[in-house]
Deep mutational scan, measured.
Amino acid sequence: TDVTFHVNGRNLHLKGADEELLRRIEELIRRGADIEELEKAVKEWEK
């Protein structure tokens, strides 16, 4: 799945995201995470 999140005026584009990653990103956004936290979560998922 390709999806782009718009967070605090910045874009986080995910290519090939699975349901697990999407749920994790949505949860972080609900908690008020900043873009750096979201990018870190994506990097951890990519490993």
Rank of each mutant, 00 (worst) to 15 (best):
K15A: 04
R10Q: 14
E26F: 15
T4F: 06
N11S: 15
L22I: 15
E19A: 15
V3D: 04
V7M: 03
E44K: 09
D34Q: 09
R24M: 11
K15M: 06
I35V: 06
G9V: 02
L12M: 05
T1V: 14
I29R: 02
H6R: 09
E19P: 15
A41L: 10
H13Y: 13
R23Q: 07
L14V: 13
G16I: 06
L38F: 03
A17V: 10
L21K: 02
V3L: 08
A41V: 12
E39Q: 08
V7E: 03
R24E: 07
L28G: 03
I25Q: 00
K15I: 09
W45I: 03
R30I: 09
N8R: 06
A33S: 08
V7W: 04
V42A: 06
R30K: 08
D18N: 12
E39P: 00
R31T: 07
K43F: 13
I29F: 10
E26D: 06
E26Q: 13
D34E: 11
R31L: 10
R30H: 09
D34A: 07
D18G: 11
V3K: 11
V3A: 06
N8D: 07
E36W: 09
L28W: 08
V3S: 02
E19T: 13
G16E: 04
K40Y: 12
K40T: 11
V42N: 01
A41T: 11
G16K: 08
I25E: 00
L21M: 07
H6A: 05
H13V: 15
N8Y: 04
G16D: 08
A41K: 07
R30W: 11
E46V: 13
N11H: 15
A33D: 04
L28K: 05
E36A: 07
R31G: 10
G32S: 04
E20V: 13
L12Q: 00
G32H: 04
W45H: 10
E20I: 13
K40A: 12
K40H: 11
L38Y: 01
E37Q: 10
R30T: 07
T1N: 10
E27H: 12
R24H: 12
A17K: 03
L38N: 00
G9I: 02
G16R: 10
F5K: 05
N8F: 03
G16W: 06
A41C: 09
I29N: 01
H6Q: 09
L22F: 05
R10A: 11
D18L: 02
R31H: 10
R10V: 14
L28E: 03
G16H: 08
R23M: 08
N8L: 04
L14W: 01
E27C: 15
E39W: 13
D2S: 05
K15Y: 08
E37G: 07
V3F: 15
R30S: 10
L22C: 04
E37R: 10
R24N: 07
K43N: 10
F5N: 06
I25H: 00
E46C: 10
L14K: 00
W45Y: 13
R30Y: 10
E44S: 11
I29D: 00
E37N: 06
R31F: 09
L14E: 00
L12F: 15
A41P: 00
L21Q: 03
D2I: 08
D2C: 15
N8A: 05
R10D: 06
A17N: 03
I35Q: 02
R30M: 10
A33I: 05
L38K: 00
L14T: 01
T4G: 04
E26G: 12
G16T: 06
G16Q: 08
R24W: 14
L38G: 00
L22N: 01
E20P: 11
R23P: 01
L21I: 14
G9K: 01
D2K: 04
G16P: 01
A33P: 02
E44Y: 11
G32R: 04
N8S: 05
V7G: 01
E26H: 13
T1F: 15
R23V: 07
E20S: 13
N8Q: 06
R30F: 10
I29Q: 01
R23I: 07
A33Q: 06
R23F: 10
